[in-house]
Write a protein that binds this DNA or RNA. Structure first.
Lengths: 416, 416
DNA sequence: TTTGTTTGTCTAAAACCCGAACTAATTCTA
DNA sequence: TAGAATTAGTTCGGGTTTTAGACAAACAAA
């Protein structure tokens, strides 16, 4: 794949270089530490070419030499690994209760993971921009203090985001048409690295694709949500946002309900499940904070673990509705796995058997269960935002290593 | 995009050429007849490069010069167009009642369109291979007699097809695990052009993407079927088959039904609609031939046109169920259009208003109606199979023009 | 110590794209 | 009607990239 130039997909000779640099990077990540000769064998690239590519990646500090093999016939090989000390990708998540910031190195290893309370739902977008900007600055300072270059930044929002970074609709933050990307870049005064805004479920599925138990699987559906229920869709290895960015609205899938049909999220979203399993709880569940959701999940888990029959029956009923929705998703998309993420993961022990049973009963062929629980924590969206940055690098958009980040900042401001 | 080499996506210098040849081809198709200078302006390629690319495409007889512009300031431009006389792509459809063969030239213009009765459902796979082979031979002979090179061949089957061309399950032909591609290539004794087998709904959506009223739309869902109900999914401009090739099983979507839930195809497939609208008809509808389906469709259309209230009410009820299924598809995939194809197209005048109404009521944002009727005839699958061949050419897999097709045949047999 | 094996680099060649200069063919203008 | 202006397309030299083959380096085994 090339396609780095903006024009209608024309290719230049330089694109070959970018593509092959990315091929080498991916090869080193997938195969672990390996020699130039290994890379040549694995990729089909000529030894000479690999040497040239590797020396450029060494110069750019994306690879490093880790020593030589010993006790082998022939000349010892110089082993290469991703340089985990020279750079970092940043992922941020904004939601109704808190801000999360994570950073990972080029190999995906965690560099930092912060969380602070922030009432995103009771604060204006402008103040949120200020808070997020301050957080980003602290993260960047920390990262650069460690001698790392910032590869890029992704920000996850729990709502609808345009490809150009406008937040079209974020119910839990009471946002509508907030040009978050532009305001953020403005507030950062030319960050000097790429900034992207995205949907939390979409980023989460990218996190699963890179860090999850089924990393590398090219067809995934990731379910998450609180009052709503959204899906991140990974098809053929890429995120699919749909024609208008509305794809994955799994919560709107009609499922049978007493007296006809109801949107899936009214019977099987996290808050809906909580309402069904804990009906004695009379608090208004339309505007539950995440903290309140967590309390309820904990209570459900406690009761279920204790074997409370009412809880188990009600959970089973809710699971059957969720299973119907998942069966629909599988019928349409045929993913390799459907991942129960977010708060669903904590309920997975009681949900998964029902879901996989229904999929099996209805004849979905599978060697192993299709529905699985996410093993990533609630950091998944932020992790995914960072993963997106790493994906970009591994697609050939290498960081600009020639100019210091600060000089770039000025240049970035001019065209705006 | 490059990615022509088999290895893990490595790029060679030659890939740039293939990519840019394809860019020029697409440019000429999309812009209509245009000059080298126009191409350079539209693609961002250098004038020199365009000249070089065009001269190669002229030599390969994929482009031709159509004359010069006049009455313009400056040197007249030599206009270029796709050479519609030098080659053709073949599409075949096999189903329970008949074989269809179409051929189109490089510009997509029809070259031939044949249909012959063939009882695919009562005949062994081996005899079907023989019949299809004979049909292909006649088509190839005719095309080569016209001095055209065969660019490739696609065969549409109404069932599940592996990426490597094995027919896993084709209910209406009583096929299970038939290695159709291999047998066909064998019977053709090295065709000398690429052969691909695919699913009819998948090919049909490709036909819509190239020839349909909304050609060029990159996110489409195409609905078709008889007793079953399948969808072809075009996402981000490419066909999506899912992890195991089972994607688009829209007929399995659970929808509310009296006494719970039912698979969509039991209430809104073509035969289900016929059964609901013409309940006095007592013939077994499980194994309806296409001819019988057509008879029933005609009768429904006649009654509806006459304004028969019972027919209209029943059609409306069926349309509501179909609409529920389509709403689900739209919620999950967010396509630009959902196309009612196959026999649905004939019922579209009564189905579409109900469907679009429901989408609108449930808040799917759309400037224009999302659900539309296919304007392609029942040839869509065969046309799409041919379109697939043209797509491949426009992706840079240009036909091998150096060796005559007959010589290639021998070479192709050797590795097998 | 010699031989064989494996690794990595050097060199020359081929393919490709690009910018600048140049030729070509027409309309415009005085 | 002759020259200027304009647009189209080609020629030429230069730069980038990959590649095959030769070669040097470094080790184990004999």
């Amino acid at each position: 794949m090339i396609g780095r130039t903006r024009d209608p997909n024309k290719a230049e000779v330089g694109d070959v270089r970018a593509t092959n640099l990315a091929v080498v990077l991916r090869c080193v990540r997938e195969q672990g530490p390996c020699s130039r000769a290994d890379i040549a064998a694995a990729t089909g690239l000529n030894k000479t070419t690999v040497s040239s590519l590797v020396s450029e990646l060494l110069r750019r500090r994306l690879l490093r030499e880790t020593g030589t093999t010993e006790n082998r016939v022939g000349r010892p090989a110089i082993m290469l690994a991703l340089d985990g000390a020279s750079s970092a990708a940043i992922g941020i998540e904004v939601n109704a209760d808190y801000l999360t910031a994570v950073a990972v190195d080029l190999a995906g290893r965690p560099v930092l993971s912060w969380r602070r309370a922030f009432p995103g739902n009771t604060v204006s977008p402008a103040r949120t921009v200020t808070a997020v900007t301050a957080l980003i600055r602290r993260v960047v300072t920390r990262i650069e203090h460690d001698g790392r270059q910032v590869l890029g930044l992704g920000v996850a929002l729990p709502g609808l985001v345009d490809p150009d970074g406008r937040a079209r609709l974020v119910p839990s933050l009471n946002w509508r048409n907030v040009d978050f990307a532009a305001e953020l870049v403005d507030a950062l005064r030319g960050p000097g690295f790429p900034v992207e805004i995205g949907n939390d479920a979409n980023y989460a599925v990218l996190a699963e694709h890179r860090f999850g138990e089924h990393a590398g699987t090219r067809d995934l559906v990731y379910l998450t949500g609180g009052t709503s229920l959204g899906a991140g869709l990974l098809v053929d290895g890429s995120l699919r946002r749909g024609h208008s960015g509305y794809s994955g609205e799994a919560g709107h899938i009609p499922v049978p309900a007493p007296g006809g049909t109801a949107p899936l999220e009214t019977v099987a979203s996290i808050t809906a499940i909580a309402r069904r399993v804990l009906p004695d709880d009379t608090r208004d569940d339309e505007h539950l904070s995440l903290a309140e959701i967590e309390l309820r999940i904990d209570e459900i888990v406690a009761r279920a673990r204790a074997g409370d029959p009412t809880t188990l029956t009600r959970l089973h009923d809710a699971a059957k509705d969720l299973a119907t929705g998942i069966f629909t998703l599988v019928s349409v998309l045929d993913p390799a796995r459907v991942i129960l993420g977010g708060y669903y993961a904590e309920l997975a022990p009681w949900l998964l058997p029902v879901v996989n049973d229904l999929l099996d009963t209805r004849g979905i062929p599978a060697d192993e269960p299709i529905a699985v629980a996410s093993t990533l924590s609630l950091d998944a969206p932020a992790l995914g935002a960072a993963a997106r940055v790493l994906d970009a690098v591994e697609q050939g958009r290498l960081p600009d290593n020639t100019t210091p980040a600060r000089a770039l900042a000025a240049a970035a401001r001019a065209p705006r």
